[in-house]
């Protein structure tokens, strides 16, 4: 009798452990979906390497990135892996230290602008028709404001006042000019989801609108949110590059944008200093490439029709293996 009871308790424990393990496994496999997609994997690896360079780059850079310490225009060598600039700075050190600020501005713009566009877009999509169309009007106004022009105007205005755009004002301006695109996407997505039965159901069982927004709508559009985040981050990196390239940022800051500015200003492309102009260009392109790869990958993961295709492919390869 007693044994039986123990068995029962044991079984219960086993079954709860079993359920826990299963949950964990399913979580792992669902994150593995990201890893099973080659584009997402490549994008993620690339992005993570950039991120680690961004975090430790300033610490491991061999020399002071801003110091005019060396001979000018030296080609790459063992002591200067990427040569020196026309001012005698170490390019490799600049590249390492410049990763952090570049990433910081890009990701901050991605984060801030996406947060604004989620709030505005989802709210607009889930409120009354009149409120929704008013907000839509505001979104459209921001959509047609050319962000780059605003930045140029503001930058020249500040130059006139003998000041330059620091990182934080830059992030702010890029976010203000960059949120509308995402908000429009989120609004239309929310509009279509709000009409679905499972949202009506939640209204009927007495959920508050706030709960529906955060527990259900934001969750449904999560893949689009991630994708929007990466696109806006691209906009942030491009914005930074452009601002620095125009010379309205703080030119003593070291980032990939200012590196481009100085190298182009010194006509590095004419004087054959390829080691000065190519590294920041390649890094910026690779960074954007990693965002785009991640985007494509997430698109495929979250798009069931594409996923089906991959499972068909896998089945086919399994059959091929059998035949072989």
């Amino acid at each position: 009798m007693q044994n039986n009871k123990f068995d029962e308790a044991d079984n219960k424990l086993k079954s709860t452990i079993f359920i826990r393990v299963k949950q964990l496994l399913s979580k792992l496999t669902s994150s593995n979906i990201l890893m099973s997609n080659n584009k997402a994997k490549a994008g993620l690896i690339l992005f993570l390497s950039f991120l680690s360079i961004g975090v430790v780059g300033g610490l491991i850079s061999p020399y002071n990135p801003n110091g005019f310490l060396f001979g000018r225009n030296q080609p790459p060598s063992y002591s200067h892996l990427l040569g020196t600039t026309a001012y005698g700075q170490d390019v490799f050190s600049q590249l390492l230290s410049g990763a952090g600020p570049t990433l910081f501005v890009g990701l901050s713009v991605g984060l801030l602008a996406t947060a604004v566009s989620i709030t505005v877009g989802v709210f607009a999509g889930f409120s009354s028709e009149r409120v929704s169309s008013i907000i839509n009007g505001i979104i459209n106004v921001f959509l047609v404001i050319p962000g780059i022009l605003v930045i140029m105007l503001l930058g020249t205005f500040m130059l006139g006042a003998n000041q330059s755009l620091g990182y934080f004002p830059m992030i702010l301006i890029l976010s203000v000019t960059g949120w509308a695109w995402g908000a429009r996407t989120f609004r239309s997505q929310t509009l279509s989801i709000a009409k679905r039965d499972f949202i009506l159901s939640s209204l009927l069982i007495g959920e508050s609108r706030l709960s529906i927004v955060f527990r259900q709508i934001v969750r449904s559009i999560f893949p689009i949110i991630i994708s929007n985040f990466f696109f806006t981050s691209i906009y942030g990196v491009m914005g930074l590059t452009f601002v620095e390239y125009l010379g309205i940022g703080n030119l003593l800051d070291v980032n990939w944008g200012t590196m481009l500015y100085w190298s182009i200003n010194n006509e590095a492309y004419l004087t054959g200093l390829w080691w000065w102009i190519l590294p920041p260009s390649i890094m910026i392109s690779l960074l954007m490439f990693s965002f785009i790869l991640l985007n494509f990958g997430i698109d495929e993961v979250s798009n069931p029709s594409l996923r089906k295709y991959s499972s068909v492919k896998r089945k086919k390869s399994a059959v091929d293996n059998k035949n072989a």
């Binding site: 039965d197 499972f198 159901s201 939640s202 009927l204 069982i205 007495g206 508050s208 709960s211 259900q216």
Partner: peptide, 29 residues
């Protein structure tokens, strides 16, 4: 007064499990 929808493939939130669906009305009420 509650309502059951026609399409059970559309009336449950694909992102939440069975327990959630039954728990939420209890919590809100």
């Amino acid at each position: 007064v509650q309502m059951v929808f026609q399409d059970p493939y559309a009336s449950l939130d694909p992102n939440h499990n069975v327990a959630w669906h039954v728990r939420r009305p209890l919590i809100t009420s």
